[in-house]
Amino acid sequence: MKTRIKELRARDNLTQVELARRVGVRRETIVFLEKGKYNPSLKLAHEISKVFNSKIEEIFLLD
């Protein structure tokens, strides 16, 4: 799965640590999400979409 987290983080001037703190995970989880090496739970995907004020399908893109 591809994600637009890195792009949206840059848009909102958020660091990985800041995003991790806002959604309640470790920084490593954000790193893996950005690399597409982890499929998040629906809850985490929802939390991330709330932070970026976007829909889940706009952030997480199926190959």
């Binding site: 640590v17 991790a20 703190r21 309640g24 995970v25 470790r26 920084r27 490593e28 989880t29 893996f32 982890y38 998040p40 739970s41 809850k43 985490l44």
Partner: peptide, 9 residues
């Protein structure tokens, strides 16, 4: 950093 040490991953 005020992060959660145990998360879903």
């Amino acid at each position: 950093f005020g992060l959660n040490p145990v998360d879903e991953l």
